[in-house]
Design a protein around this nucleic acid. Structure first.
Length: 477
RNA sequence: GCCUCUUUAGCUCAGUUGGUUAGAGCGUCGGACUGUUAAUCCGCAGGUCCUUGGUUCGAGCCCAAGAAGGGGCGCCA
């Protein structure tokens, strides 16, 4: 007999039909009622077991966390909590869970505790919801680009270029670190290493995506990204997933449209496809809000925030205008900012970004045309000679979720900018070649997948929206 | 990397001005009950008060160093 998934069984009209279900026990009440979950949905199926008809030693093995297979009749429930239930005819314990040492109890656990047992936290309602949603978000991203005629490009995970300038990199080597070969100058002899040269884990697939966009027109990457930065925050990981579309013939404003459309498409899809899980996370957040002082509570709940994001155009503000708004803002005048907004040309602090998004505009903001000196070498230089066609999308509660730009397509401008910023042009010949042969205007951006997950789930810590987080000093599981 | 807070039972947390034998809820275990919804009721067990050192007649509580965890900042997605 074939097993039926819980998500199917709870949608099936109960007509005393024979069914087989398999899953993990969430609770066992009155020695009679089993709440069984198989991860196909946040909802459980209730199994009713007449303990009088089964050996006691078998009944005693039905414990929270144990895995069972049960066969019986699907009948209308006599209780009020559920539409149907399975009257168990026979069952089998597939895996015991010793209640004396199984760490999950049918009660609320702290996220910090669950992070320490990340191998088991999938079995909680919260993390079940998060990782079902994570799948739907990833899938929606692929669908969005596929429907628009983009090609999914697999950019390399190992790169030999250390000139991408997006942060500290993890070295990749097959050398024996206790016996590193040095030359006479005490330099590492990379010729003896696996690739014959230094290699690193990628910090971005953008440069490779640009190469492909110069032929396929519209591509995107979606893969793991690695930063060896010593970042200890609720918004950073050493290993995270990034989506990087790159589009030939797009300018900075097409780029904004694409990013905004994509975010709205994905959020819309999740709202229609993950209603049960979002409802659970909504209730969870509401409960959490109750224990906070009025001042720190969210003005909108999770679903309202998602809907608001769909209903409103993201505010587009130039860096120059943003500086003026911040300079004239109340917190700046009253000296409330930790970093006073000084002159044009300095980078915005996260408190400034938060003010713009959460207090001034109260919606997602796209900041664009940043001073060239605080941005990367590949961004297109504007005619004013001071700014580049960069854009960042800032979300409430999260900050920067997207960073992108129109790329510098003019060979001379790019090469001279690289020299100014000490980027080795010889090593990057392949990147410059795209500007030598059939160059064209193009643009792209990077979307932090886990940061989008934070917004969609309402979770507060990025370590809770990725199955196995990696961060400084931590690579467990 | 910097700042800050926390660390007491399996989990979540109380613990007064430094004072005898360190508590609660939930969970486990034993029992009762059996159409429950994190079932309910009764009972038992469970502690290196993070570690080390110091102050003191006396430290869970005060001081110092270290460890682990949370939050903020920086770097960024």
């Amino acid at each position: 007999m074939k097993r039926i998934r819980v998500i199917e069984i709870i949608q099936t009209e109960p007509k005393n039909q024979n069914v087989l279900v398999k899953g993990w026990v969430r609770s066992f009440r009155s020695n009679r009622f089993i709440a069984l979950n198989d991860g196909s949905t946040i909802n459980n199926i209730q199994l009713v077991i007449d303990f009088e008809n089964f050996p006691e030693d078998q009944i005693r093995r039905i414990t929270v966390g144990s895995c069972i297979a049960a066969q019986g009749e699907l009948i209308p429930s006599q209780g009020s909590g559920q539409k149907s239930e399975v009257r168990v005819v026979q069952f089998e314990i597939l895996g015991d869970a010793d209640p004396g040492i199984y760490p999950l109890q049918p009660k609320k656990h702290s996220l910090e505790f669950l992070r320490e047992i990340a191998h088991l936290r999938f079995r909680t309602n919260t993390f079940g919801s998060i990782f079902r949603i994570r799948h739907h978000v990833a899938f929606a991203i692929h669908r969005f680009f596929h429907e628009r005629g983009f090609y999914y490009l697999h950019s390399p995970v190992i790169t030999a270029s250390d000139a991408e300038g997006a942060g500290e990199m993890f070295h990749v080597t097959s050398l024996d670190l206790s016996r590193i070969p040095f030359n006479d100058q005490k330099e590492v002899e990379y010729k003896k290493d696996f690739f014959g040269r230094p290699a690193n884990l990628t910090v971005s697939g953008q440069l490779e995506a640009e190469l492909a966009a110069m032929a396929l027109s519209q591509v995107y990457t979606f893969g793991p990204t690695f930063r060896a930065e010593n970042s200890n925050t609720t918004r950073h990981l050493a290993e995270f997933w990034m989506i990087e579309p790159e589009v030939a013939f797009n300018d900075i404003f097409d780029n904004m449209d694409l990013a905004e459309d994509m975010l709205k498409y994905v959020i819309g899809k999740v709202m229609t496809e993950c209603t049960d899980d979002l409802k659970f996370l909504l209730d969870r957040e509401e409960e959490e809000q109750k224990s906070k002082p009025q001042q720190e509570r969210n003005e909108m709940n999770l679903l309202q925030r998602l809907q608001f994001c769909l209903d409103h155009q993201f505010e587009r503000v130039s860096y120059t205008d943003a500086i003026e708004i911040l300079r004239n803002s109340n917190p700046n005048k009253k000296g409330k900012f930790q970093y006073a907004v000084e002159s044009w040309g300095t980078d915005l602090q996260s408190e400034h970004e938060r003010y713009l998004v959460e207090k001034h505009y109260k919606k997602p903001v796209i900041l664009f045309n940043y001073p060239k000196d605080i941005k990367a070498f590949y961004m297109r230089q504007n005619d004013d000679g001071k700014t580049v066609a960069a854009m960042d999308i800032l979300f409430p509660g999260i900050g920067e979720i997207v960073g992108g730009s129109q790329r510098e397509e003019r060979y001379d401008r790019l090469a001279s900018r690289m020299k100014e910023m000490h980027i080795p042009t010889e090593e990057m010949y392949w990147y410059l070649d795209t500007r030598r042969f059939g160059s064209c205007p193009h643009a792209g951006f990077g979307l932090g997948f886990e940061r989008l997950m934070l917004f969609i789930t309402g979770m507060g810590n990025i370590r809770d929206v990725i199955p196995f987080p990696r961060y400084p000093g931590y690579a467990e599981f």
